[in-house]
Amino acid sequence: MENLVVERVTPVVKQTESIIKAEGVSLSFGKIKALEDVCIDVGQSEVVTIVGPSGAGKSTFLRCLNLLQKPDRGHITIDGRLIFNDSASVNKRDLLDVRRKLGMVFQRFHLFPHLTALENVTLAMLDAGIATRDEAVETATNLLDRVGLLKRALSPAPRLSGGEQQRVAIARALAMRPRALLFDEPTSALDPEASREVLSVMKELAQQGTTMVVVTHEMKFALNVSDRVLFMESGRAIETGTAEDMFYRAKSPRARAFFAQALDHMET
């Protein structure tokens, strides 16, 4: 089968510094094991995608990384700081710190409907006290320009298309100057055209060296943009490797079957 890597993102120089490190992350809901000993180590400027069938625990694991969902056990280190371990409770200061260091982009945008695009981006900076109003407006304007929405800066959020709202959400996450961005199925609620717009922004972020962890069903993005791919099923990390190794040379039978089907779908 011919490789489908036709628009491979030009890699930036990767750093060995670990930005996100999770070890043995486990979580149960009653008798249901949502996550079981999941590990990940994301270096500076790396793009790691998490893929797998629906119900694999991908989004749950992503939410655990920024403690939107507290694991039952495991260790999570962000930017060299241990922010969760199963032998100590998480304090509010740690929570605020990790939320600032890990920008989160959700499936459903979560913009404030009574605010404009510009106001949605400035609000977090003002609430966190990391910028004056003038500084926040300047930063938000630059970020909206970066995601191709400068002309829509004063548009109320409900008047923006789904793809535009998601790009505002990306600009809002970047406004907090995070060490990494977490994306939870950012195109799942979008039509194909809007998905392409959002993925294009994400590719540019990757080219610029943004550290990213992306839960996605966009297999072409995973293949062409990822430095590494983590395959999950039934709450477990089955296998991880470079994008090309996972798509073309996966070792576990389940991963091979999953990526073979993904490649067949991309060829049609």
Rank of each mutant, 00 (worst) to 15 (best):
A169Y: 00
L230F: 11
S89Q: 06
E135L: 05
G129I: 02
L118N: 06
F61Q: 08
R81D: 01
A180D: 03
H217W: 04
A180S: 06
F221M: 05
G24M: 01
K251F: 13
L102E: 03
P178C: 15
H110L: 08
L27I: 05
D72G: 01
I170L: 11
N85D: 03
F61K: 05
F61G: 05
P11H: 14
R99K: 09
L82I: 08
F247I: 03
G57V: 04
P113Y: 11
T187G: 10
L96N: 09
V147M: 09
L102M: 11
E185V: 12
M232I: 00
T187K: 06
H217D: 07
V98W: 07
A237N: 05
C64Y: 03
E218H: 12
F183D: 04
G162L: 01
L143Y: 04
L62I: 01
T141G: 11
Y248A: 11
A250L: 07
I238R: 08
K92L: 11
V215A: 14
T116W: 07
G80T: 00
E185C: 10
V214R: 01
A117H: 06
K14G: 04
T216M: 15
A250W: 02
S234H: 04
S18R: 13
A180G: 08
L82H: 10
E193K: 14
H110G: 02
E233T: 03
Q207R: 14
R81Y: 13
Q208L: 15
L35P: 05
R177L: 15
A128L: 15
E185T: 08
E119M: 00
I238T: 06
D245G: 14
A169S: 08
E204L: 12
N85I: 00
S45L: 11
G209T: 03
K220Q: 15
C39H: 09
P113V: 03
A124L: 10
L182T: 00
F231L: 01
A257P: 02
F258G: 09
A117Q: 00
L230E: 00
T240W: 09
G30T: 01
E164C: 03
Q166K: 07
E46G: 15
D245Q: 10
Q44K: 15
I32T: 06
L115R: 11
K220M: 14
